[in-house]
Design a protein around this nucleic acid. Sequence first.
RNA 1: GCGGGUGUAGCUCAGUGGCUAGAGCAUCACGUUGCCAACGUGAAUGUCGUCGGUUCGAAUCCGAUCACCCGCUCCA
Length: 535
Amino acid sequence: MTMDSIVSLCKRRGFLFQSSEIYGGLQGFWDYGPLGVELKRNVKEAWWSDMVSAHDDMSTLAGAPSPYAMEGLDCTIIMHPQVWKCSGHYDLFHDFMVDCRETKKRYRHDQLNGRWVEAKGKKVFVTAPAGDDEQEHMTKRALKFFNLRNKNIDDLKWDGDSTCLTEIESFDEVLGPDAKEAGTLTAPREFNLMFKTYVGALSGEEGAAFLRPETAQGIFVNFKNVLDSTRHRLPLGIAQIGKSFRNEITPRNFTFRSREFEQMEIEFFCNPAESQDWYKFWRDRRLKWYHDMGISDKNLIMREHHKEELAHYSIGTADIEYAFPFMAEGEYGELEGVAHRGDFDLRSHMEGKLDEKTNPLTLQLGDDGKPKWKGSGKDLSYRDDLTNEKYIPHVIEPSAGADRATLAFLCEAYTEDEQPDDKGKMQTRTVMKLHPRLAPIKAAIFPLVKKDGMPEVAKEVYLDLKKHFKVFYDAKGAVGRRYRRQDEAGTPYCITVDGQTLDDKTVTIRDRDSLEQVRVKIDECEQVIRERING
RNA sequence: GCGGGUGUAGCUCAGUGGCUAGAGCAUCACGUUGCCAACGUGAAUGUCGUCGGUUCGAAUCCGAUCACCCGCUCCA
């Protein structure tokens, strides 16, 4: 199975199109076609139903410390600019980069350190990626640059301490971290991973705002509103599905890394004392959800981040990853991240942007000694009216990509098998084995042949089922071909009206995966299909 | 952003040395057809990714540009 055949099927059958295709397309943007929009809606609705609307808040779910409540939310895409300053996105997603003309490598301007060094009458500023071994790196590069051997290491005359490249004005004497010649670095160029826009008619910096790079912040800033309006006690989860935008430098791999994408996020607020248990609960629950929706064990892994990868305030982060066909053998792409975020986000919106490097977390200060980005000043802590305990809730964040999940389901469903044709000869069949809950079309209705009143009966069955499910009517061509067309669309059931229908009001239901047929009464069709979809 | 590759019908792809554009599949119509990619007959489909240049003449040569794929880079 290759990605190409999946991409080709998606286009051919109307799952996915390139955005603005007639104008040549636009990198990182994709449209969902008639089948794709149904599939993606089903993915989102399955998630919303399983996580929110059908959530059993009376019972203690397996692995959970206690019952919990779930609510939904739908926030705006453009929010107050201060939201992104306090959340840290503004600083993090807004980088200056320098390119090396010689090695074609790119570095973050503020992540290169360097020192002046002199030898053989020449002086350069030798740079290295900031880190513990930067001096070792610099020495190596300096020796190479001056064409010196290790034993002549004392010929290097270092001048001053290691300083950040941002302190250097001209790059003429700067030696790039991997370059052989000095002066190959370009001037720093601005990269903004957040889409910028302007609120109001005046397009000055006063009205500058950003399209959200994640849906999560809308939940944090509404935490108090939801709590006050619903009378819930913690633990409480707040869910949101919505579009987010990131101006990725290199969108690639079909819809996997898009610039406009949809997220399905939960921010789960709980007592810090129980947060570890809740983290484990959500991690396992979310993994199981993908299993239940049809992703096989061999293609799905949970990857716990190592301690070094974690922000120090986080007790754990786990990625749920899928073996996409475009990844190298043994590599996986992220579907969802489940993160323990502690009280970082709520505190950020109370106090202002926190310095992630501090422990315990403290406010990040600007050069003037004042808070770099000032918070709302609102109290977002929670008082338990039963115990009278007051605390800032800890947050567990299961953050899923709706487009990535949809893509994973498409990849997982794509199957080529061998089935006999009407002469018994084996033929390759392309079939999308989507979970019936996710399938864009639940059932197709066919008259076996276009005569003897079969189309009339089939149309009646079609119109009746249409009230309950997304169904499709097809009378064109031989019935075998119609079955195969539905296989490619992922339709799990095909209902055929035949000669016997006219005698006893029964039809056959054909199963996409097993090709088996059962005969049921027309009146029972709806119930049988419903049971199978949910079953 | 850099390097390499690709771009021709809905899909998969031919194509020539510069002159009127091709196949298979798919699609549509009619007839036949009684359960897994049927058959017959007929039909429709492209400014050859886009823009520009060279030329009497460009899908073909040159330049630019856009998109996709691969490798770097990046990836809260």
